[in-house]
Computed example of a mutant assay.
Amino acid sequence: MQGPFEDKEALADIFTQVKDVDEQLFGVILEILRKEKVKDCIGFLSDNGNQKQLESQMLKQGNFTQADTEQKLSVVRKDMIQITDVLKKLKDHDFNNKDFSTEENYESTLDLIKIIKDERQAIKFLIFLVHLTAIDERFIRCGSNSLYLLVEMKADLTKKNFENIKISNTQLIGANFVRCNLNGSHFENVDISGMNLSGAQLFYCKWKNIKINELNIFDCQEGSVKSICFSPDCSTIALCCKDKSILLQDIKTGKEKFKFDNHSDWVCGIFISIRNQYCKVLDVGY
């Protein structure tokens, strides 16, 4: 489906270009950019001298024979060119200029997520872009969209170091940052409704204009709730009601998805399958 992003498909293609990149290189690049206090990551990565520094650092990741060293250098050079090229494309792309979390762009963003959600390397690259916001301010929009996509894809973000990241004008609803290092992070105009910050480090943060929506009310229309069950992807809650019905509601919006009636007695328990394909009643009556 073609949406507001005219080059939506091209964006998916851009992410695909890093699928064969050695993921260790992402960490090495970030480490050197931080050490050198770089403000222009593209300019730095385009410099031959800096490329040699990165090559040297990558070679320290293991013990290589002469032949292996030459092969490793060849791969690293190719990967660095690929990463630099992708960053150049993203810099002037809608992904670095528009807010992908808006309702207007929801369907287009959803299409993009469907394409990349199972691509491990794409997820690693999105995390790399989030970290880049702490280094090069020209990629704050890009990194903010990246973090939004990661949250929507329910990528595992727990126990990660997101120190000093700068995120703005996006939604991180239901984000799971359990035991993350968010020290020094800058959040501005960010919706953090339902965000889990249990055990997270939050020293020296600068969070401005943070939005937290009121919690949705989940209740049966008639009578009390006997039991509840969450879907495995945490998108749906099932309520077993005293009026002998089962009510499915959307976690984010609180809206009713479906209602099962005509049970012979109270439904005391329910199970939702892993892929949300069916509900199974576990017990009826007292």
Rank of each mutant, 00 (worst) to 15 (best):
I274V: 15
I165Y: 04
P4C: 00
L129Y: 00
T65L: 07
C220N: 08
I173C: 13
I83V: 15
S46V: 02
D94N: 09
E104D: 15
C279D: 12
L247A: 05
Q221C: 11
E6S: 07
F64H: 04
K78C: 10
D47K: 10
I116L: 15
F95L: 09
K78E: 15
K52W: 10
F125R: 08
V76Y: 12
M1D: 09
I29H: 03
A134L: 10
F5T: 02
K252H: 10
D99W: 09
I272R: 11
A175W: 01
I270P: 02
T109K: 13
V76Q: 11
V18Y: 12
S74V: 02
L132Y: 02
K88C: 14
D261M: 06
S185H: 04
L90C: 13
N48E: 14
N169P: 06
C180I: 00
D243C: 12
S108V: 13
E214H: 14
V28S: 03
D233Y: 06
C240P: 11
T253F: 15
L150A: 01
N96I: 02
N183R: 08
M195P: 09
K252M: 09
F271G: 13
F128M: 13
A12I: 02
Q66K: 10
E23K: 07
L25F: 03
A200N: 05
L25C: 03
T253P: 15
L59I: 03
D136I: 09
Q61D: 08
G269E: 13
S227H: 12
D156M: 04
S74I: 01
K39C: 04
K52P: 00
